[in-house]
Computed example of a mutant assay.
Amino acid sequence: MSESPLISPFPEPDRPNIPHWLHWLDTCPSTNTIAIARAAQLKHGDVVFTKRQTSGRGQHGRTWHAPTGVLTASFVLDNLNTNLLPGLSLAVGLAVIYAIEDLVADCRTLLRLKWPNDIWIDRRKLAGILCEATSSNVSATTRAVVGIGINLCVDFDLRGLDASAIGNAVSLHSIASQVPDELCLLDRLRQYLLELAHMFHKNDKPAGKSGLARLLPELQHRDALFGCPVAIELSDKTIYGQATGIDEGGRLRLRLEGDRIQAFASGRVRLKN
């Protein structure tokens, strides 16, 4: 009986200069799905990458469209503190911003984080993040699979994706004079995520040095929603208010009627017209 493609060994790379941590697949349904299914074959810092993702997943069960030209990868981070995981996607967002800005001078100071998991430039979506917690089959510790999709060089019109399907997305090649090499960008992302993993590590640290605590000033600086009128869609209702920032737990704070502040841990947020 042949092995399932989800649990078969990773193929040996046929490309020169592929680092030991990178598992390169020509195509796959979802890099997150593969990373979770093949947990026993992966270790801390490993990356699953594909040129063509056919069934990508986004937040709240939505489809993540990843045509040719979208960098799609999942990063494995081990031994994380479960109590800090609610803020992980925001911290990953900063890592994505730093990695892009390091390599693309045209984007420096322009990228913003749209709570809870999108990267914006001029209020258009450049990248998305999907963090999924799982148990490591190897060490029985908390593992996060961090899926990242970045629109590097993609023609959405050519692929038949209109604005409603892609959430007003933008491709990096249309706004920057250069697009970084995929391997260079993956390496830079990995470096930042390994640094971030230390802040979310399982071992106890002083409150001011763990999780989002150290990152709050930069989160406030990069917060695309701060001061904006927004609508947050919950499972049973939609709430309107003014975004007033992100707290240490990664929750979005809204000012509601009567000047009352309420924090939300999840929900789909859109700018109110």
Rank of each mutant, 00 (worst) to 15 (best):
Glu3Gly: 10
Glu3Ala: 14
Ser4Phe: 02
Ser8Glu: 12
Pro9Lys: 02
Pro11Gly: 10
Glu12Leu: 13
Ile18Pro: 05
Ile18Ser: 04
Leu22Trp: 09
His23Ile: 01
Asp26Lys: 08
Pro29Arg: 07
Asn32Asp: 06
Leu42Ser: 03
Lys43Asp: 11
Lys43Arg: 13
Phe49Pro: 00
Thr50Gln: 02
Thr54Arg: 07
Arg57Asn: 01
Thr63Phe: 05
Trp64Leu: 10
Trp64Ile: 10
Ala66Ile: 12
Pro67Val: 04
Phe75His: 11
Leu77Val: 09
Asn81Tyr: 04
Leu84Ile: 07
Leu90Asp: 05
Val92Tyr: 07
Leu94Cys: 08
Ala99Met: 09
Ile100Ser: 03
Leu103Ala: 06
Ala105Ile: 08
Arg108Trp: 09
Ile119Ala: 10
Arg124Asp: 02
Cys131Ala: 15
Cys131Arg: 08
Glu132Leu: 09
Ala133Asn: 11
Thr142Ser: 14
Thr142Ala: 13
Arg143Phe: 01
Ala144Thr: 02
Val146Gly: 13
Gly147Gln: 10
Gly147Pro: 10
Gly147Leu: 08
Ile148Asp: 03
Asn151Arg: 05
Leu152Asn: 10
Leu158His: 15
Arg159Cys: 15
Leu161Gln: 04
Asp162Arg: 07
Ala163Asn: 03
Ala165Trp: 00
Ala169His: 05
Leu172Trp: 08
His173Thr: 09
Ser177Glu: 11
Ser177Leu: 04
Gln178Ala: 13
Val179Phe: 09
Val179Tyr: 00
Leu185Ile: 00
Asp187Leu: 02
Asp187Cys: 08
Leu189Gly: 10
Glu195Asn: 08
Leu196Met: 11
Met199Asn: 13
Gly208Cys: 12
Gly208Gln: 13
Arg214Glu: 00
Leu219Ala: 08
Leu234Gln: 14
Tyr240Val: 04
Gly241Arg: 09
Leu252Cys: 01
Arg253Met: 14
Arg253Gln: 15
Gly258Met: 04
Gly258Ser: 03
Asp259Leu: 06
Asp259Arg: 11
Ser266Trp: 14
Arg268Gly: 02
Val269Asp: 07
Arg270Asn: 08
Leu271Tyr: 12
